[in-house]
């Protein structure tokens, strides 16, 4: 199980790095998906190790949330692009000043 958790941790950290480092909104969104998936892998590995099913059921709910989040987030990205003409995160500064 430890091997699976280490792989999940590596993928989670790569996703976090993508969120922190990139400014392209679409790539930030995809890094978020990577983090979701790393968490899913952790759930499945632990529930396999403890002979439980709850973790696997929870993965289904995470997938539901990810699908809902994808629809709304991509809607926001398209609206942002229509407003600004770019997907640069630094241009989202209306609330400044």
């Amino acid at each position: 199980m430890n091997n699976y958790l280490i792989v999940a941790g590596i993928i989670f950290c790569i996703g976090a790095l993508g969120v922190l480092m990139r400014k392209n909104l679409i790539i930030v969104f995809m890094s978020l998906e990577l983090m979701f998936n790393a968490a899913n892998l952790g759930f499945v590995a632990v529930s396999n190790r403890l002979n439980l099913i709850s973790g696997d059921v929870f993965v289904i709910f995470v997938m539901v949330v990810a699908a809902a989040e994808a629809a709304v987030a991509l809607g926001i990205i398209v609206a942002f692009y229509r407003e600004k003409g770019t997907v640069d995160m630094d241009k989202a500064n209306e609330l400044k000043n």
Partner: peptide, 13 residues
């Protein structure tokens, strides 16, 4: 949640 997401995506689009 999925129902709310449908409405949200429609509003943003």
């Amino acid at each position: 949640l999925l129902f709310v997401a449908i409405i949200g995506a429609y509003l943003f689009a």
